Computed example of a mutant assay.
Amino acid sequence: MLRVSVDASVAHNARVWDYWLGGQDNYLVDRQVGDHIRGVYPEIVQVARADRRFLGRAVRHLAGKAGIRQFLDIGTGLPAVENTHQVAQSQAPDARVVYVDNDPLVLAHARALLVGTQEGVTDYIDADVHDPEPILRAASKTLNFEQPVAIMLLGILNFVLDTEEAVAVVTRLVDAVPSGSYLVLTHPTTELGGAANEEAMRFWNENAVPPITARSGAEIRRLLSGVELLEPGLVSCSEWRAEEEGPPRVAQFGAVGRKP
């Protein structure tokens, strides 16, 4: 059995996010911080769930109509409903999915639960988004970087606090994949969330790890500069090709772009 060392005295993003999604893989401190933030900014639960539903819609499109068979999901988080490999392999059983995260609890669960189809492959890399080179080296053992790859960066670049560094990370990842590849991104923004969202983020940075930053639409467009956005462009992730009419707008931008 894999043994991991987890600090249960400080709230951690992966576990608080799991709590907001209705999961069980969290501790008292995560629930306390999660409840306080929800009290300040009740819409945070909608943000978490909208981000997860966006993932499902984006991956179904890519593995289905777009014909993508390789996915590099950086910032996996704890397993929840409709993980990337489950969605992709439901559309294309031979899809290959590599997850990346550096949280020890995520690592423990990923190895136990992220099991793919017989036809496809699901793998996990213990690495940090701040350093893309080890990610690319390890992922190349499972993915063929001469064929299109969908790079998934959902709710992860907000932990790269310096925008220039975040741009450099995305540029390196997109440079590593060929034409016809895709970039899938979500990112929190105070442009849509207002003062309560800003207060929630301040509380987070004082009481939980890792620290987080919001970005404006203009800053997020810089992260997407190497791809051509699919319709409807950069929008609240709840509104990106929503399956219901008039979904509530959440303070999380989402976009899918194709590398020309």
Rank of each mutant, 00 (worst) to 15 (best):
Y19E: 09
A8C: 04
A66S: 14
A50D: 02
R57Q: 09
V33E: 12
D7E: 07
A48Q: 04
R57L: 03
E43I: 11
E43W: 05
H61C: 13
A8G: 01
R31M: 14
Y19D: 10
G22P: 14
Q24P: 08
E43A: 15
G64C: 07
A11F: 12
R53F: 12
V29T: 11
K65A: 14
V45T: 14
R53C: 02
Q24K: 13
R53L: 15
H61A: 14
A50P: 02
G67K: 06
Q46L: 15
A11V: 10
G56Y: 00
D7T: 10
G23W: 13
E43Y: 01
P42V: 13
W20K: 08
R52N: 02
Y41L: 13
H12C: 09
L28I: 04
A66E: 11
D7H: 10
V16P: 04
R53I: 13
V59C: 06
A50S: 15
A48K: 01
R60F: 02
Q24G: 06
E43R: 10
S9P: 04
A63C: 08
Y19Q: 04
R60D: 08
A11K: 02
R52M: 01
G64S: 05
V16I: 03
D30I: 02
H36K: 15
G64I: 03
H36P: 07
P42L: 14
A11N: 03
Y19I: 06
R60C: 06
Q46K: 13
R52H: 01
A66P: 05
L62D: 01
R52E: 02
W17G: 00
Y19F: 15
V45A: 15
I37N: 01
V40W: 00
G22V: 15
W20G: 14
A8F: 00
V59T: 08
Q24T: 12
L62K: 01
Y27A: 12
W20P: 12
G22A: 10
N13W: 00
H61L: 15
W17A: 02
R38H: 15
L62N: 03
S9L: 04
R38C: 14
H12P: 12
V10K: 11
Y41T: 08
G56R: 05
A50T: 09
V40E: 00
A48C: 04
D18M: 04
V10P: 03
L55N: 07
